[in-house]
């Protein structure tokens, strides 16, 4: 599904990502863990096309997408969610998702008919909202939602682009236990239908979702393996898991 080789990104002297190799197989949930500042968000940015890489290549579904702009990659089925919630605060929940549906349906150079009455777009947006358990709130302004709901909406927007591979940047960030559990259940339901690349600090979540785990430290992948392998790896323990206790 996704093959990444020798991907690097430097900020001045800081090597945010350094010769990253990654292979995400279709259908799996591949987690990326690593301490703060390891370069996880930078890697996601490079994969989705928000950031231009200094070196390396990215193949998505056998196609070289290294030079493609972000919106083209999304159209090919490579979407992301943001660590820092990015929703359109002044729009309703439904409209937020509908923007993604519009984008997915092709160009929106239609200037006259009211888009809020486009039943087919609304129906699809509601369907996605149902998936994340938010259809009740569809008329609320996104800016008025709770933090947890905004995180859910964030995922719903990414899902509405109908991705084959979804890059999730800390979907549980800042969530309470109850909200986290709901999100975990949702991701578990998604798994299998959509290939997931998951960046997450919560180890319980990672170990209950991931089929494969890569450990990123100082911009480098120091180990990739099954959850059991990672749990028992001396290198990982020393470099990362060790200091977490």
């Amino acid at each position: 599904m996704l093959e990444v080789s020798a991907l690097s990104k430097h900020y001045g002297g800081v090597k945010a990502t350094d010769q990253v190799n990654l292979n995400v197989k279709a259908g799996e949930c591949h987690a990326i863990i690593g301490p703060n500042g390891a370069g996880k968000t930078t890697l996601i940015g490079q994969l989705c096309g928000e950031l231009l890489s200094d070196a390396g290549v990215i193949f998505f579904q056998g196609r070289n997408v290294t030079g493609l702009p972000m919106h083209r990659r999304v159209q090919l089925g490579l979407a992301r969610s943001f660590q820092i919630t990015s929703v359109f605060d002044d729009m309703t929940v439904l409209a937020n998702v509908a923007v993604a549906v519009q984008a997915n349906r092709g160009h929106s150079f239609r200037f006259w008919r009211p888009v809020s009455r486009n039943e087919s777009i609304n129906a699809r947006a509601l369907e996605v909202l149902r998936l994340v358990g938010m259809e009740v709130q569809h008329q609320q302004l996104a800016g008025a939602l709770s933090h947890g709901e905004r995180r859910q909406l964030e995922i719903a927007m990414a899902l509405a682009t109908e991705p084959q591979l979804l890059l999730l940047d800390e979907p549980m960030a800042g969530m309470g236990a109850e909200e986290s559990n709901a999100m975990l259940a949702m991701l578990q339901a998604l798994k299998g239908d959509i290939t997931l690349l998951l960046v997450e600090h919560d180890m319980d979540v990672v170990f209950s979702l991931a089929d494969t785990i890569s450990v990123l430290v100082y911009g480098q992948v120091i180990e990739t393996g099954s959850p059991a392998q990672i749990r028992n790896s001396a290198t990982v323990r020393e470099a990362y898991l060790g200091d977490a206790g």
């Binding site: 928000e50 919106h71 929703v87 002044d90 729009m91 923007v99 519009q102 984008a103 888009v115 990414a158």
Partner: peptide, 24 residues
């Protein structure tokens, strides 16, 4: 209030997010 208008409104609020939804 058209399709086009909503995309513009999205761009106004958060262009990067709009692009990340697949909009050129």
């Amino acid at each position: 209030h058209s399709h086009f208008g909503r995309i513009l409104a999205a761009i106004k609020q958060n262009e990067n997010r709009t692009r990340a939804l697949g909009v050129n």
